[in-house]
């Protein structure tokens, strides 16, 4: 676990910056790099560091708050919540995730990533999960 977890975004990617921020922070939350009670930088500070508009970071924080990861209180910034274990995903939701995962794997294959490498990446992702 890193002492100062970091997120990285690429402004040249077609994925919107706010989506990259949400995904980056969520990954750190799921991996446990950001423990409950951790305070995240203010919207202004993170926007400045990443060189994006304040609204971009604000939107990302709001989405993570809606997902139950962050507590956003006026004047107190964003704090990581002790997120209670969610209910097991419904069969429909599971099917949706399966489709998305298949899509991602297909995209990786289309981009020339060899199958063993994809397996290794998935295994590494699983290892990072707590």
């Amino acid at each position: 676990m890193s002492r100062d977890p970091k997120i990285r975004i690429d402004l040249a990617l077609p994925t919107p910056a706010y989506r990259q921020i949400v995904d980056g922070i969520r990954t750190l939350l799921v991996e446990g790099a950001l423990a409950p009670g951790c305070r995240l930088p203010s919207v202004r500070r993170l926007a400045m560091e990443l060189g994006v508009h304040f609204n971009t970071v604000g939107e990302a924080y709001r989405e993570l708050s809606t997902e139950g990861w962050l507590d956003l209180r006026q004047g107190r910034g964003a704090t990581v919540l002790d997120r209670s274990k969610p209910e097991p995903a419904s069969p429909e939701r599971l099917a949706e995730f399966r489709d998305r995962l298949r899509n991602l794997v297909t995209q990786m294959r289309a981009a020339g990533v060899p199958a063993p490498k994809i397996v290794a990446e998935l295994r590494a992702a699983k290892e990072n999960l707590k």
Partner: peptide
């Protein structure tokens, strides 16, 4: 460079 990195520590 288009890649940006930021620490998530709130230690102001």
């Amino acid at each position: 460079e288009t890649v940006r990195e930021a620490g998530l520590s709130a230690d102001e």
